[in-house]
Design a protein around this nucleic acid. Structure first.
Lengths: 211, 211
DNA sequence: TACTGAAGTAACCGTTCGGTTACTTATGGT
DNA sequence: ACCATAAGTAACCGAACGGTTACTTCAGTA
């Protein structure tokens, strides 16, 4: 038995649970396996995190909370053009997914299960302050006649998320479909730059070019 | 008990299994449930299809075979502008997913499993004739200086697929994130139109506007 | 050093899982 | 009519599931 340390043990359990849920999904992961992987007994897992559903919810929403904190960086960073902000957001989304490979898998599992475990408020928080920054820049650009009127934040965020999500959770089928290699950092960076510019040009009016 | 009919019963079992696996995934679906849904005993399921894994593989391969037979989906023959072709492809992708709701779910599960059951040649066939049409239009537009040089078919197809895939397989999280409703056909059409135009503008040079 | 509260576990419970066995029942050829 | 064969099932099995209970072991402290 290890030296007794509640927080350390809880962290081990949490990490083991996150990995197991990401790997095997909710039904596939088992408390026995999580406990064994965390190096403790199953009873301890339940004592610290409640039922299996509670544990799953904790893992999921914690990851979303991390994501929202990450996006908050953009409050400080002062992108003063739409394309810069888009590239910044995309870069962060990609970086987060790269640092947390299990996140995209959790989201996939969650969607397959109807997102029944996802805490809406926690997930909504992932819109975060970066969105308000985007909204301001967007409306300012609209006022100047640089961005089309039918463009709104939600549609833009959908595109940003779609490009990111598919990159990390559909890479196997996408590799077959497009021939892309999704492994190298260069590919990732080229992706971000290309689609940031594509989106910026895509939402621009004839006068403004989005840059 | 129904009138005895082996093939009919096997078909019922297959359909029940396909639905169950699409709904609940491999671990989530159970033989008991499949048998009950098929209106027969669990022993019969196993007698006709072997183990649970055998049954899963049978369902999966059969579905992909269906898909490869429907490769004509992407044919958009008489579009003579990039934006029309993009809109046509998007429309077809959306229609296909709408007609086969379980397809996106199976693809999600395949990606979670590393696409180990996916037959690459069958999937690649889904590029189909629409892609060569897209490639021709794209290179023609490039020659006229209407489309940027760093744009290629794969990157465009990636965007098209991303917008579609996320719409059908990540709608729960996306609804929370963007507030969109993904149910109504109007929403779907607005999606298609908006992103077709966004992409067309996004890949255009300053001279050409993609239309 | 003896006590105490918290950290941690072994063993168990009822249920359900995938899979098997022994059995019953319908059908078609003679 | 009869019966061999195939269609189909009820009941069961060991294992594993999520979760509980009763118990042990450590660390701080008065």
């Amino acid at each position: 038995m290890r030296t007794r340390n509640k927080e350390e043990t809880q962290r081990r359990i949490f990490d083991a649970a996150a990995a197991a849920f990401a790997d095997l999904g909710y039904s596939g992961a088992t408390l026995d396996r999580i406990a064994k992987s965390a190096g403790c007994s199953k009873a301890l897992v339940i004592r610290y995190f409640g039922t299996k559903q509670d544990l799953y919810r904790t893992v999921l929403n914690s990851r979303y909370a991390e994501l929202s904190q990450r996006e908050a960086v953009h409050v400080v960073s002062e992108a003063d053009s739409v394309v810069d902000l888009l590239r910044g957001i995309l870069t962060d989304l990609f970086a987060f997914n790269r640092e947390h490979p299990s996140f995209a898998r959790l989201v996939s599992w969650e969607n397959l299960n109807g997102a029944e475990h996802l805490d809406p408020s926690a997930a909504r928080a992932a819109r975060g302050p970066g969105w308000t920054r985007l909204r301001h820049l967007l409306e300012e650009a609209k006022r100047k006649g640089m961005v089309r009127e039918d463009v709104n934040v939600a549609r833009l965020v959908y595109a940003l998320q779609a490009i990111t999500v598919v990159y990390f959770s559909n890479r196997h089928t996408m590799k077959i479909l497009t021939g892309f290699s999704f492994e190298s950092p260069q590919t990732m960076r080229a992706f971000v730059d290309f689609y940031a510019e594509l989106l910026a040009r895509g939402i621009a009016t004839a006068q403004g070019d989005g840059t």
